[in-house]
């Protein structure tokens, strides 16, 4: 892995939170103790672990949604721990996509309007609507573009979320349990779509899941336990 094609470099990351305890007291809870991770451009990385092991916390830190308590973290070569929230957001704009377990589509918008959102935020020029429709077409939902997302099924909503994530052709995509809220069959379909798009656009993928079959499809697989990452050799 050469220096300049690393998208993420994390070393010695720690995350502690203050949790309320009995008798109005509070205690410091250590979620991540020592995280070291380097991710090269274009690869897919899976992170698995038991419930409460800190998978989502780690994903949030890597995406710059939150800041670590200690350690260093570089995203696209920039040290995240030195940046303000707005500067971290600017770093993500147009370059980072997200797929969430609960989809997090905006309910008052139609499918195509949801997909338009990141393009408009990044102030991309050109025929945005056409781009959004193309993205929806890629996930097989062109026909439902004008539907409000509340009218769509869970699988369809997650496909809209995939279209929203890939419409800016991001360099990096974070997926948080993307199949967690879907039935097995639909989950498999959505996963297949995710990997196809990741492959087509050469997007770096960080995937948090507890579905081992899904993790096994990634280039690299880490298990999170006791606040540390353990490399899992693919089966």
């Amino acid at each position: 892995m050469s220096e300049n094609n690393r998208v993420i470099v994390a070393s010695g990351l720690q995350k502690q939170v203050i949790a309320p305890a009995a008798n109005n007291a509070s205690e410091i809870l250590s979620i991540l103790t020592e995280i070291n991770l380097q991710v090269a451009a274009g690869v897919s990385v899976a992170i698995t672990g038991a419930s409460g092991s800190g998978k989502s916390t780690l994903l949030g830190l890597l995406a710059g949604l939150d800041v670590p308590t200690a350690g260093s973290l570089q995203l696209f070569g920039q040290e995240l721990t030195q940046l303000s929230e707005d500067q971290r957001a600017a770093l993500r704009l147009g370059k980072v996509g997200f797929v969430f377990q609960s989809f997090h589509l905006l309910e008052h918008l139609t499918a195509v309007e949801n997909v338009l959102l990141p393009l408009e935020l990044a102030q991309v020029k050109g025929d945005l609507k056409q781009r959004a429709l193309t993205a929806l077409d890629q996930v097989g939902l062109a026909a439902r573009a004008q539907q409000f997302v509340t009218k769509l099924s869970g699988g369809e909503q997650q496909r809209v979320a995939l279209a929203r994530a890939f419409v800016t052709q991001p360099e990096l995509l974070f997926a948080d349990e993307p199949t967690g809220n879907l039935d097995r069959h639909t989950g498999q379909e959505v996963a297949a779509l995710l990997f196809r798009l990741q492959h087509d656009y050469q997007t770096t993928l960080i995937l948090v899941t507890h579905d081992e079959s899904l993790a096994a499809q990634c280039n690299h697989w880490y298990r999170l336990a006791d606040g540390r990452l353990h490399r899992q050799e693919s089966v």
């Binding site: 949604l65 707005d86 600017a90 993500r92 370059k95 905006l106 309910e107 935020l121």
Partner: peptide, 19 residues
């Protein structure tokens, strides 16, 4: 509650506080 979620989504997509 709905707006809070929306702001979080927009932030994750890279919106800064000015926008």
């Amino acid at each position: 509650p709905e707006r809070q979620r929306e702001i979080a989504v927009l932030k994750s997509l890279g919106a800064n506080s000015r926008s």
